[in-house]
């Protein structure tokens, strides 16, 4: 009963975050137009590359698959909520104290809000991106099992990214500003996660290292699963995502515990 009650609280937070996200249409238009520009530029880029290579496959993907891969990775990347800056602001303004007296876990509250936010943003991005990809390169074959595999890897990808950003936000207990760190984090995810270039295009020496890092689980794994699903890749992804989530959660727990020791609350 208590668990159900507690879960419904967090679900309600997700729901309200999702609804409020829809209210800011200008931000949605901004994101979608940016997505369209990136897709257009990369379509031109890949067209040149495929024409020069003389092959219909680069990095194991056809041109339409490459564009759809980019749609998925971009949709995930651009759907990221500003968790780090929110946590940073909580710490800096002292709003954290208000959050702590609520009958909710601080991290859990942020997670619910971020997930509600992200699901809506991702759905919009994916819809717009898919329409653009359909217009630019046409459809690619998608199977029901492939779609299920993609949907299995997606929540863990969102969770991992949330934990990474939450950790950056908690650094506000020690740093004057975490905006720089957040920028570096997002660029690390972009580069090592294989957002623009599928990992198969990276130098052979780097590929196993990048696949083992958590960043590939955030972008590359769902992207490949969407365009080229395989059971082997699914098993690998679940294993890496599971391990990465466990490590990130442990880090969040430790950092939050240490950070709370530094928290002083004044009345007023």
């Amino acid at each position: 009963m208590t668990i159900t009650k507690s879960a419904s609280r967090y679900l309600w937070i997700s729901y309200t975050a999702a609804r409020s996200n829809l209210a800011y249409s200008s931000e949605v238009i901004y994101r979608c137009s940016f997505l369209a520009v990136i897709l257009f530029i990369f379509l031109r880029l890949w067209k040149v590359v495929y024409a020069a290579s003389g092959s219909d496959r680069v990095g194991g993907m056809t041109l339409p698959q490459m564009v759809w891969y980019l749609v998925v990775t971009e949709a995930i990347y651009l759907s990221a909520p500003r968790v780090a800056s929110e946590v940073d602001e909580d710490v800096r303004t002292g709003r954290l104290a208000v959050h702590l007296i609520r009958p909710l876990s601080y991290a859990g509250g942020h997670l619910s809000r971020a997930m509600g936010d992200r699901v809506v943003r991702f759905a919009i991005n994916l819809t717009v991106g898919s329409m653009l990809a359909l217009a630019l390169v046409g459809p690619i074959p998608i199977t029901a099992s492939g779609l299920v595999m993609f949907l299995v890897t997606l929540p863990a990808a969102f969770l991992l990214d949330f934990l990474g950003m939450f950790l950056i936000g908690l650094c506000a207990f020690w740093l004057e500003s975490t905006s720089g760190l957040a920028l570096i984090y997002t660029r690390t995810v972009m580069m090592f996660g294989g957002m623009f270039l599928p990992l198969a295009i990276y130098p052979a020496l780097l590929q196993p290292v990048l696949k083992a890092l958590p960043f590939a689980s955030m972008l590359s794994a769902p992207g490949v699963m969407f365009v080229n699903p395989s059971l082997l890749l699914l098993k690998e992804s679940i294993l890496i995502q599971g391990a990465a989530v466990a490590v990130f959660m442990l880090m969040v727990g430790v950092v939050q515990f240490v950070a709370m020791q530094r928290l002083f609350s004044n009345g007023g």
Partner: peptide, 26 residues
């Protein structure tokens, strides 16, 4: 706020560097 200033300068330098890495790989 020296720490904040230098961290933002360094972060933007690294951000731009990420794009250079992208083109290097490409």
């Amino acid at each position: 706020y020296r720490g904040a200033f230098y961290s933002q300068v360094a972060a933007m330098f690294i951000n731009d560097g990420a794009w250079v890495v992208f083109w290097l790989l490409f």
